[in-house]
Design a protein around this nucleic acid. Sequence first.
DNA 1: CAAGATATATCGGCTTCCGATATATTGAGC
DNA 2: GCTCAATATATCGGAAGCCGATATATCTTG
Lengths: 110, 110
Amino acid sequence: MTEQAFFTLTALVGAPRHGYGILGEAAELSEGRVQLKVGTLYGVLDRLVGDGLVELDREEVEQGRLRRYYRLTDSGGIALAAEVERQTANARAASDRLRTWRPARHGGVG
Amino acid sequence: MTEQAFFTLTALVGAPRHGYGILGEAAELSEGRVQLKVGTLYGVLDRLVGDGLVELDREEVEQGRLRRYYRLTDSGGIALAAEVERQTANARAASDRLRTWRPARHGGVG
DNA sequence: CAAGATATATCGGCTTCCGATATATTGAGC
DNA sequence: GCTCAATATATCGGAAGCCGATATATCTTG
């Protein structure tokens, strides 16, 4: 799963959101480590819908502008939870190794 | 940073390794969640060397076969540590949200 | 000689990312 | 009315990156 898909799914946890709203939500929950660009978003959404991880919730017209809301599916929630565990395990594996690593040294004992 | 680059850097923490050895090491430390394929490895290594995150350590001839050992640079270690923090933060953000999510429900209160 | 493991390296197809672009509405400033 | 910016959806093309296939070469097993 790509980081963009990961943030899209996370943005949809709890409440359906429309495309443009996902951008802002992803930026917020990543605290500036934003990865989602408008040129990426709709391709990601199409793929997630195709994979059954996300589905269309409803369409609204707000102040003349169309809003297409998407919703996380059960599969999407499960896939996201699995990805969280995977990333946590990966980060821990690297973190454990880094504890024994000394900066500015190569093989030195310090 | 891609997951393949992440595992390559992690495999090089602590001791220099040659390309083929990185494959096995990455498979071990990911406990089967292996991402690194032989067709990916050398492209990843070239990019990491180009970015200064990894450098050539030495070349050996073991039983007639060339072994090219790579070593993590200081920049590489710092970049890996930053990536670990990033992924940990991402996983936590998603995890926090998922705690409030109920499977097999859409808007239900349970 | 053939097959499999080790070891490096390249190629092409595919997926994905993302800036640019297009379309359309609302609101602010002149 | 016109321009600029924000909101909102959508597509296109270049670029990056992944990975199966392929090539080369050695050693071991049969």
